[in-house]
Simulated scan of single mutants.
Amino acid sequence: MGALDSEIYSEYNSKALTAGFYAAIQMGLLVYCFGDFFNLSVRMGALIIVTVTVLISEIRRLLLYNPYKDGK
């Protein structure tokens, strides 16, 4: 049972990291397109990209790997 849980968590982890990767790409494009409009520095743009990536991947991981979703 533990091996199956570990395999399922590994699959959920890869899905969460993939969601974070795509969020980083999208935020990178948005910062590139609108960075001059909002007068963002390179550091602020990088901070925005990293913050959104971490939040999206952690939220996705929480939604996927919720041990209480079965009512246990």
Rank of each mutant, 00 (worst) to 15 (best):
C33T: 15
F21G: 09
N13I: 14
F38L: 10
V42I: 02
A19H: 00
I48V: 11
A23T: 05
G45V: 02
A16K: 03
G28E: 06
F34A: 06
Y22F: 12
Y32P: 01
N39P: 00
A24N: 06
L17P: 07
F38C: 02
L47M: 06
C33R: 13
F34I: 10
V42C: 02
S10D: 10
Q26L: 09
G20T: 00
A46G: 08
A19W: 01
I8C: 03
L40G: 05
T18H: 12
L40A: 03
Q26M: 11
T18I: 05
G28W: 10
A16S: 14
Y9S: 14
A24L: 09
A23L: 01
I8E: 02
Y9E: 14
F38P: 00
N13V: 15
R43F: 10
F37Y: 14
C33W: 12
M44A: 06
V31I: 14
E7M: 15
L17K: 15
V42S: 08
D36W: 04
I8F: 07
L47V: 06
A16T: 09
G20A: 03
I48N: 03
F34Y: 11
C33L: 11
Y32I: 08
C33K: 13
S14N: 12
E11Q: 13
A23K: 01
E11C: 12
F34W: 05
V42W: 09
I8V: 15
F38E: 01
Y32Q: 11
G20P: 00
K15G: 03
F34L: 08
L17I: 13
G28Y: 09
A23Y: 01
S10V: 04
Y9K: 15
L29W: 08
G35S: 10
L47H: 04
I8Y: 09
M27A: 07
G28V: 04
N13S: 15
V42N: 03
F37V: 15
N39Q: 05
